[in-house]
Design a protein around this nucleic acid. Structure first.
Lengths: 252, 252
DNA sequence: CGACACGTTGAGATATATCAAACGTGGTGG
DNA sequence: CCACCACGTTTGATATATCTCAACGTGTCG
């Protein structure tokens, strides 16, 4: 029932739409940590909603080194794009133990054909992933090692805060420094040194699977973090109308 | 009327769907080279189809240095994602003079509400951009300077070949080395050195706004290029079948 | 012809990778 | 309980890729 309650990443969905999606869930499962769910090239017949835990999407290079291309938090529709695309260009795995719900693609087909508005909102939800990809491109292309790690911590802080898993000053992040290196395109050794420098500058501490942010302003400055690309909306999406800006009437 | 004929990037669209889109075009325009079309944060009421020329999407850092996050070729729907998203997280500009067609969002709304299949295909088309973003993340995160440039040349070759603007061994690419550096996350000086090394290894030559590929196998190997993420389909029935990976040049 | 954008080259600085090793810690089995 | 192991973390020394700064070349176009 409260299955998707945490889900505010898909802030684009109304309560009713979320409920419809919920009814379409075929199966719930617990996956172990560090399990591969989908391999690059696989064909999908259902999509996966992450309920609890952390998952990543990644691409391997020739030597088998991973580049992580997306990091998923509870409430994310991990591979909704698998519905229009059918076949995935990347692999999907858990980092931690994860609780998931799967939605068959034919259920999605029925839902989207019945409700064009829902369809567009699901479309938008996959586009948020694309926006995040772009910001990651910026991170890898324009930031130095410290900036990349800071940016990831700041981004994750904002995302987790939106779902109530961070108070803005710290959050649990049960991943290794090697995971961080695969996210930031660095070596794990260098990540370790970056972490030390962030610690010594009293910016933030990553230790025992937890990020403690001591100076959020500085962290976000080092990472040149500007959260607009997350398209986060104020938490109570199904209560208050969005106070962001007046919508151009849609012509409906 | 041959407006979208080149368009094979949206290989997901049928002829009829493409025609419907074509009828929705409100305006055609010629943009000058190096003109900004959309600024990060702008709200969109129409989307832009690129008919001729090259465009980019980019994000600026604090010092105003660009990271290019997407490179667009004729036939691309440059900002279709602006329809569900409304507001863009990045800027859009031309590199060369460009001919474009604009489609109002309310026309898209009508089309997608009338035809769920078309809606899903347009959705898929934006997901191809996301797939490209992911490959670019791989490029920036896991490849060295030579690999990044080689990967971009190989990718662009494949994309242009799909729309008949490359014969597989060379194509016009009227961009500067500085543009290349903003795409690959390098300095223009280093790009210059990489280009020399590609030239001296008889892999490919970039000169006078043209890429000449001397050893496609090696180029793709250096760039670890695997085109599956482009989701290219064999170019319909009206053209010659694509030479698959079984090429006479045995490469490596 | 001169101006300006773009390309090329060199020398030195710096960030990050690589290699090697030690350290801590939680879990496991004897 | 200890011994030990696997895994992740930390540190040091060195190598190397890329950047930075500076200068010079080259083509194009008014």
């Amino acid at each position: 029932m409260d299955l998707f309650l945490r889900n505010r990443t898909i802030a684009t969905l109304t309560g009713g739409e979320r409920a419809a999606l919920e009814r379409a869930v075929a199966e719930r499962k617990i996956l172990p940590a560090r399990a591969t769910l989908v391999e690059r090239g696989d064909t999908l017949r259902q999509s996966t909603m992450l309920i609890d835990g952390f998952m990543i999407r990644y691409i391997d290079d020739l030597e088998g080194h991973r580049q992580v291309v997306a990091f998923h938090v509870p409430g994310d529709f991990v591979d909704l794009h698998g519905y229009p695309l059918h076949k995935l260009d990347h692999s999907i795995a858990t980092l931690t133990q994860a609780s998931i719900a799967t939605v068959p693609h034919d259920a999605l087909k029925r839902l989207t054909e019945a409700d064009a508005e829902l369809a567009r909102n699901m479309w938008a939800s996959t586009l948020l992933d694309a926006a995040m990809h772009r910001e990651w491109l910026f991170r890898l292309g324009r930031l130095d090692a410290t900036g990349r790690v800071a940016h990831f911590f700041a981004e994750t802080n904002a995302r987790l805060q939106a779902i109530g898993l961070s108070d803005g000053n710290g959050y649990d992040l049960p991943i290794t420094q090697t995971d961080l290196s695969e996210i930031t395109g660095l070596t794990s050794i260098h990540v370790n040194r970056v972490l030390r420098s962030l610690r010594e500058s009293r910016t933030c501490v990553f230790r025992s699977s937890r990020v403690e942010i001591q100076d959020r302003g500085q962290l976000e400055h080092i990472g040149q973090f500007d959260p607009t690309y997350l398209y986060l909306k104020p938490p109570a999406a199904d209560r208050a109308p969005e106070p962001t800006e007046k919508e151009p009437a849609d012509g409906s």
